[in-house]
Amino acid sequence: MGLEAKLMSDGFLTTTIDALVGWARESSVWPMPMGISCCGIEMMAVAGPKYDIARFGSEVMRFTPRQCDVMLVAGTVTYKMSHVVKKIYDQMPDPKWVIAMGVCTSTGGMYRSYSVVQGIDHFLPVDIYLAGCPPRPDNLLNALMLIQDKIKNTKAREFQNIPLLEPVKVNGN
C-alpha cells in the first residue's frame, strides 16, 4: 500500500493548513476555456491525446464559469467581446486566476486595428501572459504549471485581505 501503511496505526503528518489547501488547489485547477479564436484550437490540442492536460489535473473543462478556477482567455478579444469576457470573469467564484494566452490577448499583437482591445489587462487582472501566436501547447502547459506554483505559494488569507496578526511584542528587557 501507500505511505499510510508505513505509519503506525494512528500516524499523522504535520503541515500548515495553507500548505495543505494549496496542494489540493494546485492539483485540480479547473480551467474555463474561453476559446475565442486560433488559440482556442491549440487549447483543444492541449486537451487532446498528445499533450493531455489531464496529467496536470486540469482536464475538467467546464463551460460554466461557476465551477472554474482559472480562465484561459485564448484568442483575440475585440471590444464587442470584451463585455462578454468580463461578464464571465465576474461569474467565476473566488479565488480565480487568468491566463492571457497568445500575444493578441496579452497586447493586441499583430492586430493593430480599431476593433481589437490592445491587451485584456485593460479590463481584467491577468496572472500569466503567454507569448506566441498561437503558443505551442507545451507552452500552455508551462503556463499552467506556473499558475500551479502561484497557487501553491499563495496563503489563504491573501484571498480575503485579512492582515497578518501583529506579532506579540514582549515588553521589558
Binding site: 471590444y79 464587442k80 463585455h83 486595428s113 480599431y114 479590463f123
Partner: peptide, 9 residues
C-alpha cells in the same frame, strides 16, 4: 479607430 468610440467594461 477613434478613441472612445467603443467602450470597455
Amino acid at each position: 479607430g477613434i478613441p472612445g468610440d467603443l467602450t470597455l467594461p
